[in-house]
């Protein structure tokens, strides 16, 4: 190869690559609208995007996996946390996390109510972008699909005034929060066999979306139990697992569920109430 051929190679390779790249760019523009639901970019979403930029969020968080890796990814946050939670969180993050235990904390941003609402609208729009199903498994902020791995809250001891994610639950807490504690501490522990992640069936079926499924089961003809409402169904499943069987050879045989019995004795009425209240919140 001589100098001239080498130069022609460089120019040719660059030109061809650039042309292909430009053609694909044009085609991408044809598809952006549909993939990103561009028709749903309301003025509110646009303002929310400006808020996202104004407060430099991307230099701690990641969004669509892009950002600074110092704070949780927010791509699907509106599918994991309700609007009321996010509103309260953005007013004062210190109510939710403890810098001493979690080692990092989001500084209070002093957003106006309008800014908060619009930012949530923007994040909700982002969560619906068609991005090839990423992330392949939900990215959680805290807690875990793995039993016992979320060590900050459940094992921590000390001051009562710590935010809820940084201390054990107490009798003053919301019944659902106490129910989540029962979920992890009952014997045998519920989370040894059940995950709360969509699609993650373990020895027992996943409990993600339980409330929705329970409502469907209650109205279907195949239901064999005697519960009248969702919490009743959940309570019945805990104390009498064989009252209604979820189809599947890995879950039951000869009309008997594989789930352990005896929770009616090992848990108090109050604990059962809390547990049912927690599980009924998994919509």
């Amino acid at each position: 190869m001589n100098n001239r051929q080498a130069r022609n190679f460089a120019i040719g390779a660059t030109a061809v690559s650039a042309l292909v790249f430009l053609a694909l760019t044009l085609d991408s523009h044809r598809q952006f609208g549909k993939l990103t639901n561009a028709d749903q970019i309301t003025p509110q979403v646009t303002h929310g995007k400006d808020v996202w930029h104004k407060y430099n969020c991307i230099n701690c968080h990641t969004l669509l996996g892009e950002g600074a890796y110092y704070a949780p990814d927010l791509t699907k946050i509106t599918q994991h946390r309700g609007e009321a939670y996010l509103q309260a969180y953005m007013r004062d993050p210190a109510q939710f996390y403890d810098e001493k235990k979690h080692r990092r904390l989001m500084p209070k941003q002093d957003l106006s109510d309008q800014e908060i609402t619009d930012l949530i609208a923007f994040l909700d729009w982002v969560s619906k972008i068609d991005n090839q199903g990423w992330p392949p498994r939900p990215i959680l902020v805290t807690g875990s699909f793995v039993p016992g791995a979320d060590t900050i809250g459940s094992h921590a001891t000390g001051e009562e005034s710590a935010p809820s994610a940084a201390r054990p639950v107490t009798a003053e807490d919301d019944p659902r929060a106490q129910g989540e504690h029962v979920f992890r501490t009952a014997v045998p522990a519920c989370n040894a066999c059940h995950s709360t992640a969509p699609g993650a069936d373990m020895a027992g079926p996943t409990l993600a979306g339980l409330a929705t499924r329970a409502a469907e089961i209650l109205t279907s003809d195949s239901y064999t139990g005697s519960a009248k409402d969702v919490e009743g169904y959940i309570r019945e499943s805990i104390v009498n697992p064989s009252a209604h069987l979820i189809p599947g050879k890995m879950y039951s045989a000869n009309g008997t569920s594989f789930m352990p019995t005896g929770y009616d004795k090992s848990l108090t009425q109050e604990q059962l109430d809390h547990l049912a209240a927690y599980l009924a919140s998994l919509k």
Partner: peptide
């Protein structure tokens, strides 16, 4: 200088279309 051309050619064959690795999971065509 001959090899510099070759390197430039290789950089652009990989580099231009390699931009695509920033287009993973951000809402662009598959």
């Amino acid at each position: 200088e001959k090899w510099l051309y070759v390197i430039v050619g290789l950089v652009f064959i990989a580099g231009i279309l390699g931009t695509a690795h920033h287009y993973y999971w951000v809402g662009v065509p598959t």
